[in-house]
């Protein structure tokens, strides 16, 4: 999809989060953790590949990108089961019903920043 622009959005988001935490001023951004959903339209491998090309001149330069894949997860409104499912089979694996709510796996989120003193 648009992994390079997502990398740029990721870095801008991280820089904004850091600016909002003056207690960490001067520390080095060592790693960024991202959650990529199965139904987000974002390809984790491409994100990893492009990230180093987006970081030069930013606070994320030299930082490591840690990508966590978030499978599609549904909560069944009929039987209450909550489970990971494949992206194109969203019906409830327990009861087979398709009255489910997608509770995870449809977004791309910055979830963590590792800051270091060195």
């Amino acid at each position: 999809m648009h992994e390079l622009s997502l990398c740029q959005a990721l870095i801008a988001t991280a820089e904004r989060q850091l600016a909002a935490r003056p207690e960490h001023a001067g520390r080095r951004l060592k790693a960024l953790k991202v959650s990529v959903g199965a139904l987000s339209g974002c390809e984790p491998d491409l994100l990893m590949h492009l990230f180093p090309h987006a970081t030069p001149g930013t606070q994320a330069e030299g930082a490591e990108l840690k990508v966590e894949f978030q499978p599609a997860q549904v909560a069944c409104n009929a039987c209450g089961e909550r489970r990971d499912v494949s992206a194109n089979q969203l019906a409830c694996p327990a009861c087979g019903g398709n009255n489910v709510s997608l509770v995870a796996g449809d977004g791309v989120f910055l979830t963590g920043l590792t800051l270091s003193d060195d």
């Binding site: 997502l6 959005a9 990721l10 988001t13 989060q17 935490r21 960490h24 520390r27 060592k30 991202v34 977004g107 791309v108 989120f109 910055l110 979830t111 963590g112 920043l113 590792t114 800051l115 270091s116 003193d117 060195d118």
Partner: peptide, 16 residues
């Protein structure tokens, strides 16, 4: 151990 802090955040990259 290295002196590190992990700051937990949650922000959508499609936010803009």
């Amino acid at each position: 151990p290295s002196h590190e802090t992990v700051v937990a955040v949650r922000e959508s990259l499609f936010g803009a």
